[in-house]
């Protein structure tokens, strides 16, 4: 019984949100980016920033912990639900296949080289040549002060 209680306590103590994420954009992108606008961009509700310029969203590898965390924390969808949602867009001609990168280094390189790009990396990764928009910490959005 004690072992069972310990197991339950351990389960409850494990956070669903094991990874803290940092949302990043190109350093010259001065658009105001808040939680609402990020949700709209990642759900393809809009494909432009506030200034009307095109936005291109990037994801971590589909099977990565970061991608799962991101979908759940920002969009309140599991990674599978997000793929399910995006398949509606592909097969109605409303959007193309989403862009995935392999790791944080590739994400940093992609976002720093593309003014339209936004993406996310682990909060422990140094954000070189990118603008930090905010953090997803324990499933909550924290805008960059």
């Amino acid at each position: 019984m004690r072992l069972f209680m310990l197991f339950i306590a351990l389960l409850l103590s494990c956070s669903v949100y094991a990874t803290e994420l940092m949302l990043i954009a190109h350093p010259n992108n001065t658009n105001k980016l808040e939680q609402h606008s990020l949700i709209q961009l990642y759900l393809n509700k809009t494909s432009t920033f506030a200034d009307g310029s095109a936005a291109v969203i990037f994801h971590s590898a589909r099977d990565s912990e970061q991608h799962q965390q991101f979908c759940l924390s920002l969009l309140n969808l599991s990674a599978a639900q997000y793929q399910s949602y995006w398949s509606r867009l592909i097969f109605t001609g409303a959007a193309a296949r989403p862009h995935f990168v392999q790791n944080d280094a590739e994400m940093l390189k992609t976002v720093s080289n593309n003014k339209s790009a936004i993406g996310y990396i682990s909060a422990s990764t140094e954000p070189v040549n990118v603008r930090v928009i905010g953090y997803l910490h324990n499933g909550k959005w924290q805008a960059m002060p």
Binding site: S84, S87, R88
Partner: peptide
Amino acid sequence: DFQYVRYA
């Protein structure tokens, strides 16, 4: 418009 995409 996506009724046959049952995965969706």
